Structures are given as C-alpha cells and as structure tokens.
Computed example of a mutant assay.
Amino acid sequence: MATRRIIDDDRLTAVGLLVEVHRGLTNKFATGLSKHGLSENELEILLRLGRTPNCQLRMSDLAAQTSLTTSGVTRVVDRLERAGLVERRSCESDRRGTWAVLTESGLARVSAAVADHIEDVERWYTGLLTEKQLAGLMEALRIVRDTVRPEAVAGVAEAAVAKTVRTVG
C-alpha cells in the first residue's frame, strides 16, 4: 500500500482551489468593471460604503474591511473623491477620525456597475451552484472569514449609531 505524501493533503487542495477561484473570478470581473471605469478595489470600497448604514465608514474601518493596506485605501479614496464618488467628513466623536462617505453620484455609479457585475457574478460563480450549494458555501466562507478576519465588519455598528445620532439630533 502506497503511503500518502504530505504534499497531497486535501487541505492544501482546498486552499489552492480557493486561491484559483479568486484569481479566476478577479480576471473574469475585470472586463465588466472597466466598462464602468472602476477597478476591483474601487468597487469593493464603493460597495462596502453603499451597504453600510448611512453609506459611511471610518477610513480605518474601511481599511480593516478590505484587502488593502491603510495607505492603499487612502489612495483609492483619493481617486474616488476626485471623481466625486466619495467625500471625507470629520468624525464628530473622534477628531482624529475621518469618515469616508458615499455621495449620491457614487451610489448611482456603483449601482450602474453592479447591475452589470451581477450578471458576471451569476455567469461565473453563483449560477454554477444550486441554492443549497451556495448557502453552504456562504456559511462556510463566513465561518472562515470571521476567524481569520474578524475585523471585516469593523465600524458597521458605529456607522449605524452615527446615522441615528444625526437623524435624531
């Protein structure tokens, strides 16, 4: 009987498949995003802002939630701000903090891009799976994400509180 080699471990295959899928999807999505003048990083920031209460996050929380460094987020937000898609606002509760806020123009741009992007997502990812497979995959990915990147939801609760404070006050 042959001894199983450590390099044939299925855990390595699981990680390898995840990396290959990410690279493949990134390549497939890039063409559609470029039609809207957006990069993958710009879309990620616009989506995170748009899907957060009051369409805003602290810059530090935005960096924690994305795959970018703090300086990388600053550069992307700079570009988005010059394009009128995002604006910065001072954080009232912490003078050192700055909010990145999605503008109406930014929401319109990301919404238009997402309308096409959803078709690519369906074609190359979710449409290849049954509802049960997709639900299981999302559950599994959240378990792993919450363990390796618990900061991925940083600032969401604070943004909701900031919205409530502004609407009430």
Rank of each mutant, 00 (worst) to 15 (best):
T3C: 10
D8Y: 07
D8V: 05
D8C: 08
D9C: 10
D10T: 14
L12G: 12
T13I: 13
L17V: 14
L18E: 11
V19N: 13
H22K: 15
H22Y: 09
G24W: 11
G24Q: 09
A30D: 15
L33T: 08
S34Y: 07
H36K: 08
L38H: 05
S39R: 15
E44T: 13
P53I: 06
N54K: 04
N54S: 13
C55F: 12
L57D: 03
M59H: 07
Q65C: 08
S67A: 14
L68A: 08
L68G: 05
T70I: 04
S71V: 09
G72R: 08
G72L: 13
V73R: 10
V73S: 10
V76Y: 03
V77E: 02
V77G: 04
D78A: 06
A83K: 09
L85Q: 02
L85E: 00
D94L: 09
D94G: 10
R95P: 11
R95I: 07
R95V: 09
G97H: 10
A100P: 06
A100T: 09
A100I: 11
A100R: 10
V101N: 12
L102V: 05
G106K: 05
A108G: 08
V110S: 07
E119N: 03
D120W: 00
E122Y: 03
W124M: 01
L128T: 08
L128M: 12
L129H: 04
Q133K: 11
Q133R: 14
L137D: 03
L137Q: 06
M138N: 12
E139L: 15
D146K: 10
D146P: 04
R149M: 09
P150C: 12
P150W: 13
E151M: 13
V156G: 06
A157P: 00
A160R: 12
V161D: 02
V165A: 01
V165G: 00
T167N: 03
